[in-house]
Design a protein around this nucleic acid. Structure first.
Lengths: 258, 258
DNA sequence: CGCATGTTTGAGTTCGTTCAATTAGCGTGG
DNA sequence: CCACGCTAATTGAACGAACTCAAACATGCG
């Protein structure tokens, strides 16, 4: 019932590396502009960033806990997630990152990665050398401010996830996550808050919400049974946004939109 | 059996406001120096920051979710925690912050606070206007780097808490937290990793770990019964650090010390 | 001494887990 | 076009970690 290989890049085959994808810079600009006003010079500087594009297969770790990256990865196309392993082999997913996000921005100032980044689907990443990004941060205050906000909003999302993991029921967690992903994707221009593509398996969903796969399945079914959500394969349709929002106690303030 | 009012500030009575506590700046310097090398000029600039010191009673919220602070609060003495409320009146504590930390550093770039800050004990805070701090960030790259790291390490701690909340048993969560607090306090120069003051009630502990008060109590008793920890009132003594670390699957890498 | 806050204990309940199949969807090769 | 094999989704049943409720016990303080 699920097809994760929705042919984002050909048949999922990485087509090697490309260089100087000038146009890809606009993705970054659009995102940062939502967080802080940018000057023309800022935009120009962003466009001149050296970006090395690279394609990755689905279900692959692209960096691992403990790595010391020398560049930051911007998700150009696809969907990634960050996760941490625990002793018995289980894992906790700590974020989902659609195209437009920079899941290892922190590596700019912290050498050692404390999580892994994996792909949900075939994904194209754009890698920007730390050096180049650091130079921008020092010469362009608005870009520094935007990146700072990026980090800080992300921390806010972590806190909200902590609330879900610690104090919400499994049902509420699923509802809350679906609202969050909807808003995130809508902001990034991928679908609307109530109709979008979210290519996770129920097992990935469970690992993000701190529940078992079996239980994730039952909760999703419950959401379907009550006609709040249609979720087939990777396409999510929220039939009753208000009901979902209430079910998950979802208050978007923590996303700091605007 | 618990005495939270351990006379941090007289009998817990705020002694009003003080201004220009020049010496308090050194606390901030010591902390930032651990995160990034500082120049003499940087130190001087930090010492010249206008700091308004203010005392707060125990068990008081000093800022609330939704507030829009115009200054950042440095914990000078005492202990605070950040928390978020959920609909039914329960809450999730998302961090504990001993003296030396700046629990609302993010407000520098995000106007609206998405959590509340409360005191565990009588606490003295030092407030630094955003304006002054922003000026420093723009004029002194090393200070900017240190603050950036501060934020990013904090996000790393959030992720580790998510792992605890999502994938560790109650027993592991308590063990993990005790290790973390021990290291944090030792780094900050308050006691050692295996002998320190942690002035939380079991109810606060429970709210941080996403469990019920009753269960928190039972787990703490278990830790005592096995002679791993002595925890009387607010003073924690870890008799067997190695055992505690193993019990909580504690790997300090996520604290990014060094 | 008595109140207030915090800790401890017991007992019944529940939400979510684990284990173990079964079913469904889809790509591949014949 | 169909059988095979893979992955993911679904189901049932027994179990268990943690919860709730309710009461008792400590301890510090005025």
């Amino acid at each position: 019932m699920v097809e994760k290989d929705n042919g984002v890049i050909g048949a999922g085959a990485p087509s090697g590396e490309e260089r100087g994808l000038h146009s890809e810079g606009t993705l970054l600009i659009r995102r940062l502009e939502r967080l802080a006003p940018l000057h023309d010079d800022d935009r120009r500087a962003l466009l001149e960033l050296p970006i090395r594009a690279k394609a990755h297969y689905a279900d692959q770790d692209i960096v691992r806990e403990g790595d010391r990256p020398t560049e930051c990865g911007l998700v150009l196309k696809g969907f990634v997630f960050r996760h941490k392993l625990v002793a018995d082999g289980r894992r906790q997913i700590v974020s989902f990152n659609p195209a437009g996000e920079i899941p290892d921005l922190q590596s700019l100032y912290l050498p050692r990665l404390d999580y892994s980044i994996g792909t949900l689907v075939p994904t194209r990443m754009g890698y920007v050398p730390h050096q180049a990004l650091r130079a921008l941060v020092q010469s362009r205050p608005s870009i520094a401010a935007a990146l700072w906000r990026e980090i800080v909003v992300e921390a806010s999302i972590f806190r909200e996830w902590m609330v879900s993991l610690g104090r919400r029921s499994a049902y509420q967690r699923v509802a809350h996550l679906l609202c969050e992903i909807g808003l995130k994707l809508e902001m990034a221009g991928h679908g609307t808050r109530s109709e979008y593509e979210f290519p996770v398996t129920q097992s990935e969903l469970a690992d993000a919400l701190g529940i078992s796969t079996v239980h994730a399945n039952r909760v999703v079914q419950e959401l379907r049974r009550t006609n709040i959500v249609v979720w087939r394969g990777s396409s999510v349709t929220i039939l009753d946004w208000r009901a979902l929002q209430e079910a998950g106690e979802f208050d978007p303030a923590y996303l700091h939109i605007q």
